[in-house]
Design a protein around this nucleic acid. Sequence first.
DNA 1: TCTGGGGTCCTCGCACCA
DNA 2: TCTGTGGTGCGAGGACCC
Length: 356
Amino acid sequence: MARWLLHVDLDQFQAAVEFRRRPELRGLPVIVGGHGDPDEPRKVVTCASYPARAFGVRAGMPLRTARSKCPEGVFLPLDQEAYADASDEVMTLLRTFPGRVEVWGWDEAFLAVDTDDPERIAQDVRGAVAGLALGCSIGIGDNKLTAKLATGFAKPTGKSSAVPEAALGAASGIFRLTAADWTEVMAPRPTDALWGIGGRIAARLAALGIRTVGDLMAADPRRLAAEFGPNTGPYLRVLGHGKGDTDVTVDPRPPVGRSKSETFPRDLTDPSDIRAQVARLAADVATEVAAEGRIAGRVSVTVRTSSFATHSKQEKLPEPTIDVSRIVQIALRIIDRFELNRPVRLVGVRLEFVRR
DNA sequence: TCTGGGGTCCTCGCACCA
DNA sequence: TCTGTGGTGCGAGGACCC
């Protein structure tokens, strides 16, 4: 029997959770984000239902833009608690299948299974998830990278502009991608089709004449190392060849840190207002961290100005602490090191934990 | 498309020290 | 004592992901 990785990705997750409690919204262009008010400035779309996507609405788009593209859209506020509960339901269900489950965010998981018929298991998973009144797409691969990319071809919308021939019949919501068909499927695609390569790295690759996955496969590793560093350079080439992690970690890794940030509806200019917001966020995040019994070893403060320039300063604590007032005091000391001479649109406070 | 919030990991420059 | 060098820790920033 062979080892397979199944990447399970819930479809239009936040919208689907809303459909469960408001079935009358099914089939409508639903847009979830912010407080559900499309007039609210500086809030963005978290999830658009497939009908809303047909209007050009996308995650990350300002709500105001979404409304101009889709005036008849139904705008709903985020309900983190409901999504967390729904996610738990799905992950609990996945753990009833033979195999190992690694949770990957709210709406994704990897399932490692030993089988000669991974499609059969994928169909069973889809059926079980449908029993929760949710939908999912499943990518089957020989590692996490191929499984994850396969999901993109299994999505109902046909996420990619050029869906491979084999996926055209994938109304089943399942697609398999392995080393055997990697070159045929992926080589003609742009480098940012790969999981882990975004717009910035794709642009830097393009400057080296590397535009497609096929180009990346043939690239000189020394040249990549010179451009991207001794670790990232060779790693990019490995990605290009479709090699990926096969380890599935059942136990969640301990978090490295916790942060809170806020973009204000209007820029802040008064330093005392900025200090007050930093103190509030620091107190919030420190209270949460203390409640979980974690110990902060480092405090970091981020400031984003009206021009979107983002700067952060940090301080390692002489003694790790869970004391909220002490953390607030340090955060204020850090914000006082900034030159607050430009309007500020966002501040954030991050705590990094001491490993125990 | 005037660009959220919460994460993780990597790189680079600098200071310090042996 | 002065200078060079290499390791290490820290701070800042970049990039990616959902």
